[in-house]
């Protein structure tokens, strides 16, 4: 069993913008949006479980200036086991 977090987007540009900004501060992996999640953009950002707290603190830190429009993205916790994924949406923290 593997747990990780996934940011999914409504727009490809929003996904790539967030990827660039986040990569200045931490490692996020560009992955295809899971079949289990309906989103209009196929690019998602994968955050490892051990990096999740760092990820949240980066989003909260105004100085890090991560451009992430919360209206255009959603955050999921993914539990992956035997090639099936369970996706649970969790609220995004207030940004900046």
């Amino acid at each position: 069993m593997e747990t990780y977090y996934l940011l999914v987007f409504d727009s490809t540009h929003a996904a790539m913008q967030a990827q660039k900004d986040l990569n200045n501060w931490m490692k996020v992996i560009v992955v295809p949006t899971l079949r289990e999640i309906t989103a209009s953009c196929g690019i998602s950002l994968r955050v490892a479980k051990e990096d999740y707290e760092t990820f949240l603190s980066i989003l909260r830190d105004q100085k890090k200036a991560v451009r992430l429009d919360t209206k255009l993205c959603r955050l999921y916790q993914i539990i992956s086991q035997d090639r099936t994924n369970q996706a649970r949406q969790i609220p995004l923290p207030a940004i900046g």
Partner: peptide, 14 residues
């Protein structure tokens, strides 16, 4: 190239 670079990342991840 930016989009294509992300697509190839996703391709090899998949």
């Amino acid at each position: 190239d930016e989009l294509g670079g992300n697509l190839i990342k996703m391709f090899f991840y998949t």
